[in-house]
């Protein structure tokens, strides 16, 4: 199995642990990642100029197509934006013509059918839970995990096609594979507040706080994320703005799975998480 790896803008510079953990588990699971130089997916500029945002995504997709493998991104905001681009480029002839006229100058072309996958989809749907399960050597027993879905991969379902938007199971299934227990928490599908961080910190923080308290009440040992922005929000931003909130650490999904696959915590960038997770007896590390 082979994927074009699209880490987006933030992972290499701001969350290298996500990169390390992702590469770690993919290596352990025997999936190849192809690196290449990409531009931004355009998600941040969507507020300002939808077409510029979709052009950015289209260029990424066209580059991936040139390499000739499906694209995999660990970031849910990148995933969402890339899927929006596919949707709109497929729907809107004017947009498609304009975008391809620009891409043509670089001998690139957007065409329908380029597969965009999020890390979780690759694991559950492409590789399969059974294959992941057989690779687990160190089940993370007795850990209670609150799976944080992340908005931009999940909604709007008709565009992003991630899972059932009302009752998704992909994340819980993947947590179960590691041996940990997924807790049921009412706000699991809600927003972490990250998109408003630079814009309105009061609301952003309020949304985050609600989720943390909710996860705490559900008895979670950790919040598990699968998105660059969510992790940044629940880890670094949380530490700076909500020092008194329940001390639930945020762990990236590939870090959790990596431990179950027997990868050393350092190889997963666990030490780079700002809020360290100190596991109880049952779990490693």
């Amino acid at each position: 199995m082979k994927y074009v790896y699209f880490p987006g803008c933030k992972i290499p510079a701001w969350l290298p642990a996500y990169d390390r953990a992702t590469r770690g588990i993919f290596k352990a699971l025997g999936i190849d990642l192809v690196d290449s130089e990409f531009n931004c997916c355009g998600y941040p500029v969507r507020h300002q100029h939808l077409e510029a945002s979709l052009l950015s995504s289209a260029r990424v997709l066209a580059l991936a197509d040139q390499i000739g493998a499906p694209l995999m991104t660990p970031c849910q905001c990148c995933y969402g934006n890339l899927r929006h681009a596919q949707y709109w480029l497929g729907e809107n002839r004017v947009l498609r013509r304009r975008v391809n006229a620009i891409l043509r100058k670089e001998n690139l072309r957007w065409k329908p059918g380029i597969r965009v996958r999020h890390l979780l989809q690759v694991l559950k749907e492409d590789l399969g839970l059974a294959a992941v399960a057989t690779a687990v050597v160190h089940p993370q027993k007795d850990i209670r995990v609150a799976a944080h879905y992340g908005c931009h991969a999940l909604r709007p379902a008709n565009i992003v096609g991630f899972d059932d938007p009302q009752a998704p199971t992909i994340f819980e299934d993947l947590i179960a594979v590691t041996g940990a227990t997924a807790v049921d928490w009412p706000l699991r599908l809600n927003c972490c507040g990250a998109p408003l961080w630079e814009k309105n910190r009061v609301i952003s923080t309020r949304l985050m706080q609600k989720k943390i308290e909710d996860a705490d009440q559900a008895g979670a040992d950790m919040i598990c994320t699968a998105c660059t922005y969510c992790q940044h929000q629940f880890d670094q931003v949380r530490l700076e703005t909500l020092p008194h909130a329940p001390p639930i650490p945020a762990v990236l999904y590939p870090q959790l799975l990596g431990l179950a696959l027997g990868i050393a915590p350092a190889g997963l960038g666990m030490n780079e998480n700002r809020i360290q997770w100190t596991p109880t007896e049952g779990g490693t590390p």
Partner: peptide, 18 residues
């Protein structure tokens, strides 16, 4: 300007309004 872009509204709208 304070919309957090969570798409809850769009997903839940019974009439499919974006």
């Amino acid at each position: 300007w304070n919309c957090v872009t969570c798409y809850m509204c769009q997903e839940h709208c019974p009439q499919g309004v974006r």
